[in-house]
Amino acid sequence: MDEILSQIFHIGFFAALIRIATPFILATIGELFAERSGVLNLGIEGIMLFGAMSGFTMAYFSNSLWLGVLAAMLTGMLMAILMGFLTVSLGLSQHVSGIGVTLLSTGFAFFFYRLIFGQPSTPPNIKAFTPVGIPVLMDIPWVGPVLFQQAALTYLALLLVPLSAFLLFQTPWGLNLRTVGENPHAADSAGVNVSAMRYQGLMISGALMGAAGAFLVMVQFNAFTFGVISGRGWVCIALVVFGQWGPWKSAAGALLFALIDALQLRLQASSAINLPYQVFLMMPFVLTIVTMTLVSRNARAPSALLKPFRKEER
């Protein structure tokens, strides 16, 4: 048993945990911006995949990872604008529109990948982001290797947490966005453009979901596969609820999920416990369901979530 523990809890494990958490933090915070404005963006799973695909393609042909990230974010924004057109401008059901956007984005990702790369026997790959150490900080024992020898995108994801907390709770823009998600009529009568705010929330969500997809193909793996997202987007929807629509708590949820995921990876690799590997793969999801049932009982979603805004109605 001691052997397993020491195998698990060493520095490399915690560094991996932060890395695994990164795409969850990015996409969860993205989803949070959309939901705070009153739109549930169920396009997340497909937008992440399409972002991953377009980011990979751009990086492959331009040889620039950052151009790839940019392309992924723009793709995400584009699909989010479509989501906005359906749910904000047309006022359609957010559930149906979101699933539609996911299906469409997934289809686009598959279609364009096949169109561009065909069906190669070995998938094309790119040179992934390498960890960048931050001088001085990286030399702190324990903390340094865990937090300060990560890929640049991870630093950005970690900085995003306080930044979005600041934006949401300390700026006029954030107050407007939150109000649009709580009571759009109040926002409207205070001269806030409800549709514009919702589009902005969605565009931020799309960009961050795209970035999360890009992270998966440019840091975690170095190639695009059709299963690259494999339900991570849906987990982020749950993490927003777990985090009670707050950036800090949502990021904590992402870390918790990553912890369990990292743990199951180690357990799979360890020979000490003999179970089918699917049992380990299942663990994070089972735990998500359990924590969700416990936490979401008291969850209070933004009051106007899922409700289209029409000026004349109340």
């Binding site: 107050l175 939150r178 109000t179 709580e182 009571n183 009529h185 109040a186 409207d188 009568s189 205070a190 209070r300 009051s303 109340r314």
Partner: peptide, 10 residues
Amino acid sequence: HQHFHLVPRH
């Protein structure tokens, strides 16, 4: 307005 335009949670 007759129906207040306030955000109850804020």
